[in-house]
């Protein structure tokens, strides 16, 4: 198996103006590589919600996208507050976002559910007070 193609992005915290830039960039790159529009859409949506989550909750973080022959892996890592109750966070509509965040149209409680819906596998590794790493896998075949 050959080495994966890796894209690394730093996500700025609490910057709603440039939020989504990493996802838009990855979308462009994947389009250039020639992946199918449906795969690109799934990667962009899952990654955007991860990116927004890090902006809202964790003062930023990093996103690494690894393109293998058979799958795409997205690793979203932050040093934020961690998720106290994953089951609750996975419920559609549940959100701990502030009113300011909601007034911007975020905080619908769809972040993690969207990430799960648009990926083939999602794992969450979180420790309260330490941070969260979400790994998403999207199969190409």
């Amino acid at each position: 198996m050959s080495e994966p193609l890796v894209f690394h992005y730093d996500i700025d915290g609490e910057d709603f103006i440039s939020a989504g830039q990493a996802s838009i960039q990855i979308k462009k790159n994947l389009r250039r590589i020639g992946l199918s529009p449906e795969i690109i859409r799934r990667v962009s949506i899952a990654m955007y919600d991860g990116e927004i989550n890090m902006v809202i909750h964790a003062k930023g973080g990093t996103a690494d996208v690894m393109l293998y022959e058979d799958r795409i892996e997205i690793i979203l890592a932050d040093k934020g507050p961690g998720i106290e109750n994953i089951e609750q966070a996975m419920q559609e509509g549940y959100s701990t976002a502030s009113d300011t965040v909601r007034s911007l149209g975020f905080g619908a409680g769809m972040g993690l559910p969207n990430m799960k819906r648009y990926s083939d596998k999602m794992t969450i590794d979180t420790t309260v007070g330490v941070g969260t790493t979400v790994t998403l896998v999207i199969n190409l075949i």
Partner: peptide, 15 residues
């Protein structure tokens, strides 16, 4: 009715 910059990002990503 949303009109902030993130609308453009969402429009772009959701195609």
């Amino acid at each position: 009715i949303m009109s902030n910059i993130n609308v453009i990002a969402v429009a772009s990503l959701s195609d």
